[in-house]
């Protein structure tokens, strides 16, 4: 095929970043393959996938919009408790519907608090996000008649998924359910970041002042993505409750928010797969360290953080992604040639 006019060439290149790469197909094939090959590991794999979804949520605000949050667990927690309460009191019995309701509850909180977060500089944002998560933890402890206090929500029984699939003790249904949710939400996020809206977020992260000089309503965009990310975090929290049938105060904890940043940083920010890859690496590290020193794996996680920063995140990713990037580059140049552009 041949393309000659500049608008067609422009359109071709503009769509190119959004095109599916073969490595992406490989990623999802491997994920599904793991599910089929290791049926005895459903529980840990569910944990990884769920953590990946949670980190994807943080990537949307940190990697794309540049908002550093120390309290992303706030939305995870709201999702977790919402799903727990909905199931416990039989308000919304069907899990998928309850998942959506829980996600929306987190989104409402995200929308309400976004106005606090978009104000001010990094430091204020850190404090406000951290403060909101701690506030919710304190509230959950205070209203222990609703939340079960330090014991957490007890006796949650999940109804069958879509009325068809009963959650089993091996976690098979839980795993495939989590993977399906991740995949759907990933497709949505992928669509969003390749839209004009997603592009404007990258511009805002680069330089907010310049962004408004191009006509971008910076605050409105940040409110929108913060709310959207809160929805994702809420879904991750709800999946936690639905697949483990518990929700306790630690869903709000600072450690959860801090670990999440580590997960994302391990995988790399701003390309959507960072959270998913980071979740896998994080869990592997956690498992390894737990075998080494069961009680003190926190020490090793801390060491990993310090080492990552001292080496430099950029440099680290150059090393880690050296092979996949060079393959990608080879493929891309082949593609450009085939497209006949330029």
């Amino acid at each position: 095929m041949t393309m000659s006019t500049p608008p067609e060439i422009v359109g071709f290149h503009a769509r190119r970043t959004a095109r599916w790469h073969w490595a992406e197909f490989a990623f999802w094939t491997v994920l599904i393959g793991c599910g089929l090959l290791f049926p005895s590991r459903y529980l840990i794999m569910t944990e990884i996938v769920r953590l990946g979804l949670f980190a994807l949520s943080l990537d949307l605000i940190l990697g794309y919009a540049g908002i550093v949050s120390l309290g992303h667990a706030a939305f995870f927690g709201v999702g977790a408790y919402s799903a727990g309460l909905l199931a416990l009191h039989g308000i919304v019995g069907e899990p998928v519907l309850a998942l959506l309701v829980a996600g929306l509850a987190a989104a409402v909180l995200g929308f309400a608090t976004s106005f606090l977060v978009i104000r001010g500089v990094d430091l204020t944002r850190l404090m406000v996000t951290l403060g909101i998560a701690l506030l919710l933890e304190a509230l959950a402890e205070r209203f222990s008649d609703i939340t079960g206090g330090t014991d957490g929500l007890q006796g949650i029984v999940m109804q069958p998924l879509l009325g068809l699939f009963e959650f089993d003790i091996f976690g098979k249904v839980g795993f495939w359910y989590t993977v399906a949710v991740l995949f759907v939400l990933f497709l949505l996020a992928r669509r969003v970041v390749h839209s004009p809206f997603g592009l404007s977020l990258r511009a805002i992260r680069n330089n907010p002042l310049r962004a408004s000089a191009v006509g971008i309503p910076v605050n409105a965009r940040l409110v929108a993505i913060y709310t959207f990310a809160a929805f994702y975090a809420g879904i991750a929290g709800a999946l936690f409750t639905q697949t483990t049938q518990l929700a306790s105060l630690d869903v709000f904890s600072f450690e959860r928010s801090a670990d999440l940043i580590l997960v994302l940083v391990l995988g790399g920010t701003g390309y959507l797969y960072g959270g998913l890859i980071g979740a896998l690496v994080f869990k592997l590290l956690q498992e390894t360290f737990s075998i080494l020193t069961p009680q003190y794996w926190l020490f090793w996680i801390g060491l990993v953080l310090v080492v990552i920063v001292m080496i430099g995140r950029e440099r680290l990713h150059r090393w880690v992604l050296f092979l996949p990037r060079s393959i990608a580059r080879a493929v891309r140049s082949g593609k450009t040639a085939a497209g006949g552009a330029e």
Partner: peptide, 19 residues
């Protein structure tokens, strides 16, 4: 960046707690 500083100092906290 502030993100690097946060990561680094959280790492130190975790190490000190466990140690």
């Amino acid at each position: 960046s502030h993100l690097d500083q946060v990561l680094f100092s959280v790492g130190l906290v975790f190490m000190s707690v466990a140690a």
